[in-house]
Structure formats: structure tokens, C-alpha cells
């Protein structure tokens, strides 16, 4: 664990390889179905065209999942460690729509180590920005992982 801690601490400030997400209607549908959210604004074009959005948009929380697998891969590559999710922050700036291409940039912002009963625990904070194909910021997220 001490090894892991020092390895991760060296990575503070590191940018993970960017993830490019093609947002399709199916992306929205899969997300809404997995969430169990029947809101027609996410899936029903006929309904959504009459709203102020003029078409279907993604639930704002979709942004939290874009590029999430990149973080997961990085943290779960060592099977001897347990990884839990500590906290999440989301600031949506504009809706994500089908047809958008969202580039997700992830930076390791902070690593804290705290000694505990079962050895030390690591708190790793990631800062994530999501930009669309027009380079507009669509959302900013922060994810904290707990590793022991």
C-alpha cells in the first residue's frame, strides 16, 4: 500500500489520456433506462421538440459517466486494492445532445493519505472537464475515490 500511495502521489497533476465520446440517441436511452428515469425529455423527440430545448437532451448526470471507465481502469489495475467511490461534484453548463462529440479531460488533482485500522487509506480526487465539438465547456466534474 505504501508503494501504491507513493506511486499515486507522484501522479498528482497528471492528465489522463482524453476520452472522446460520440453522443447518440442510444447513449441517452441506455443511460435513462439504466437509471430507470422515464422523463420524456431524454427520449421522446415528439415531446422534447415542444420544450424550450427544441429536441431531446441528456440527463445532466450523464456527464458524470463520460470517461469514467478511464479512471476506473487506472485505479483497479491492481487487484489487491479495494476502490470505493467517496464523493462527486457536477456543474452542468449546457445540455448534452445527440450528435455531440464530447471530449473528456481528466486530471489527478489531489492525493491524500490517512492511516487507518486496516492500513492506510488513500483519497484521490480527479477533476474532469467535458467540452463539446465547438470547444464549449458542457460540464465540470470532480470525483473522489477511496482506496485501501
Amino acid at each position: 500500500m505504501a508503494d501504491e500511495a507513493s506511486k499515486l502521489k507522484e501522479k498528482v497533476g497528471l492528465e489522463l489520456e482524453a476520452v472522446v465520446c460520440d453522443i447518440e440517441k442510444g447513449t441517452l436511452r441506455r443511460f435513462a433506462q439504466a437509471l430507470g428515469d422515464p422523463n420524456p425529455l431524454w427520449q421522446d423527440e415528439e415531446y422534447a421538440v415542444k420544450t424550450r430545448y427544441g429536441g431531446i437532451i441528456a440527463p445532466p448526470t450523464l456527464a458524470l459517466t463520460l470517461g469514467f471507465s478511464r479512471i476506473q481502469q487506472m485505479l483497479t489495475s491492481d487487484p489487491s486494492l479495494t476502490v470505493l467511490h467517496g464523493s462527486t461534484e457536477l456543474e452542468p453548463y449546457q445540455p448534452i445532445r445527440p450528435g455531440d462529440v464530447v471530449t473528456v479531460s481528466t486530471r489527478i488533482a489531489r492525493v491524500r493519505e490517512r492511516p487507518g485500522k486496516m492500513g492506510s487509506t488513500l483519497f484521490v480526487t480527479f477533476e474532469i472537464t467535458c467540452r463539446n465539438q465547438r470547444q464549449e465547456m458542457v460540464a465540470r466534474c470532480r470525483q473522489m475515490a477511496i482506496i485501501y
Binding site: R30, F31, Q33, A34, L35, T65, G67, F68, S69, Q72
Partner: peptide, 9 residues
Amino acid sequence: MWAGASGDL
């Protein structure tokens, strides 16, 4: 379903 949709595997 959530694992697949969210990428949290």
C-alpha cells in the same frame, strides 16, 4: 445495465 451504461465496471 448501469455498469454498461456508465462504464463503471
